[in-house]
Computed example of a mutant assay.
Amino acid sequence: MSLALTVLFFGLFHSYVTLASDPDPVNDFCVLNRSSATTSLPCKNSSLVTVEDFVFSGIKFRGKFSETGLASIPVNVNVFPGLNTLGMSMVRADFDVGGVNVPHFHPRATEIAVVLEGKIYSGFVDTQNRIFAKVIEKGEVMVFPRGLVHFQMNVGDTWATILGSFDSQNPGLQKIPSAVFGSNIKEELLEKAFGLTPKEIAKLRKRFAPHRL
């Protein structure tokens, strides 16, 4: 390989890696300045930073279960300013008996999840529609590659809890049912794509309307 091609290859590779993750921090930390809306400074003055900026207690207890039996508490820069620029975030997810985390994906992050309690049927689907799923139990870990649809369901007879970690401070979340039926995609397209009647589509749209998310 010529020197020019070698330089081009590594340049393209570096660009790919740079675009595939959050930017590297240029300071020890940059605690999000909550008053940045009224100032031009994105970071809290380092002289005013305390240990409390790096501690978050919001996942000590589970949240309120949704209609699907899921109680999810995200831990991102919006609630934990100390995460700012560090390229990571997490989530606590509790499942009622039979509770599910509907098929969804994170466009900007890979997720790794550890089961703290219970038994979770957990898996993802790749771009060839192959499913990788199994029941994982307390102490076991599963990884969900970036951008792939994944899901969880409590298959035990007690509450279950998982702790998920992301390699982005803002992984994003798009739930498949809500994205399809909670948006304004033309009804004709949905009829042809899913073989549904207008009545069935109307029922699904009512269920997944934005105010129900």
Rank of each mutant, 00 (worst) to 15 (best):
L3M: 07
H14L: 13
H14N: 11
A20N: 14
A20H: 13
D24N: 08
P25D: 06
N27I: 00
D28I: 02
C30K: 02
N33H: 14
R34A: 06
R34T: 09
S36E: 12
S36Q: 14
T38E: 14
S40D: 15
N45F: 12
S47F: 11
V51D: 13
D53H: 10
S57C: 01
G58R: 06
I59P: 01
K60N: 15
R62M: 08
G63I: 05
S66I: 00
G69T: 05
P74H: 10
N76P: 00
N78L: 11
N78H: 13
P81Y: 14
G82T: 03
G82L: 05
G87R: 08
G87Y: 10
F95K: 01
V97N: 04
G98D: 04
V102Q: 09
F105R: 06
A109I: 01
T110H: 08
E111Q: 13
I112F: 13
E117P: 00
E117Q: 14
S122E: 03
V125N: 05
Q128E: 14
R130S: 11
R130M: 11
A133R: 03
A133D: 11
I136A: 04
L148G: 03
F151P: 01
F151Q: 02
Q152H: 15
T158Y: 07
T161R: 14
L163R: 03
L163Y: 15
G164H: 02
Q169R: 04
K175L: 11
I176A: 14
F181Q: 02
N184M: 08
K186N: 13
E188C: 04
L190R: 08
K192S: 12
K192L: 09
K192M: 05
A193Q: 10
E200D: 14
L204V: 06
R205K: 15
K206G: 15
R207G: 00
F208W: 13
A209K: 14
L213N: 12
